[in-house]
């Protein structure tokens, strides 16, 4: 109960910061929108190629774009943590009796909320382009993005606590994110990839999230791919949260 209360307080604090600068939510969704407008049309011409998944260009690309938003949107959250560590703000919170996991979870929930808002904006903008989705499918999709975001944010916080330097954090986190993105089939479906690339992609948890997302948008909510992708991301999110909380405790001990 105390952990929930503390998490709510910390979430409220960081949500307040978000309300003070809502423009960053919009700026954060700009890049995916540019992909939607300037890249997705290129896929229309190859949507009929053998091996391209069913559902059309936008129903294939937008789910991947949402997963990409979850990954890259949350990958940068460590910057603010490093800045707060340096300014002594985290130390001020640590001397309070607030639960340690709440200090991490409150922030991560704020990050998830931002991603959900951005994802909802992206979904609405994609509909005029030709995206077709059920309300239920979109809702589960948003939950999936939230799990991707929670897992990524927690890993990003753990890395930030380990490095404590923006100069080291930026190249490491974004270099590590790129192969995850490329091997998830976000930009082009992995059904078009050679066998060796698909074999490597099999160990990338994000590829399961992308497959689940595409099934959700194609109306297959009960498919094994949806269950598998959601379960993998849920396990990853819980594991990342435990890792981040332990890093936080270690960093302060």
């Amino acid at each position: 109960m105390k952990t929930l209360r503390d998490t709510w307080l910390i979430f409220g604090r960081y949500f307040g910061i978000l309300l003070g600068n809502p423009v960053w939510v919009i700026i954060g969704v700009t890049q995916p929108v540019l992909y939607l407008v300037l890249f997705a049309p290129l896929l229309k011409s190859i949507a009929t190629v053998q091996g391209f998944p069913p559902g059309g260009a936008y129903n294939v690309f937008v789910p991947g774009l949402l997963i990409q938003l979850g990954l890259f949107g949350a990958a940068g959250v460590g910057f603010s943590l490093i800045a707060e560590l340096r300014a002594g703000v985290i130390e001020r919170l640590r001397v309070t009796p607030v639960s340690r996991i709440s200090l991490m979870l409150g922030r991560a929930l704020r990050d998830m909320l931002v991603l959900l808002i951005q994802s909802a904006i992206l979904l609405l903008l994609a509909i005029p382009f030709g995206l077709q989705a059920t309300v239920g499918g979109a809702a589960v999709m948003l939950a999936l993005v939230a799990l991707v975001g929670l897992a990524t944010a927690c890993i990003a916080y753990a890395v930030a606590l380990w490095l404590r330097s923006e100069d080291s954090y930026a190249p490491l986190i974004f270099t590590a994110s790129l192969p995850l993105l490329l091997l998830s089939g976000v930009l082009l479906p992995l059904t078009l990839a050679p066998d060796w690339l698909r074999t490597i992609a099999d160990v990338n948890p994000l590829s399961y999230a992308v497959n689940a997302a595409r099934d959700l948008f194609n109306g297959h909510m009960a498919s094994p791919e949806v269950a598998k992708g959601t379960l993998i991301m849920a396990v990853l999110a819980v594991g990342s949260l435990i890792l981040a909380a332990r890093s936080f405790n270690r960093a302060i001990a």
Partner: peptide, 9 residues
């Protein structure tokens, strides 16, 4: 401590 570390906003 000697560093107040407040939330300026």
């Amino acid at each position: 401590t000697d560093t107040p570390a407040l939330y300026d906003r």
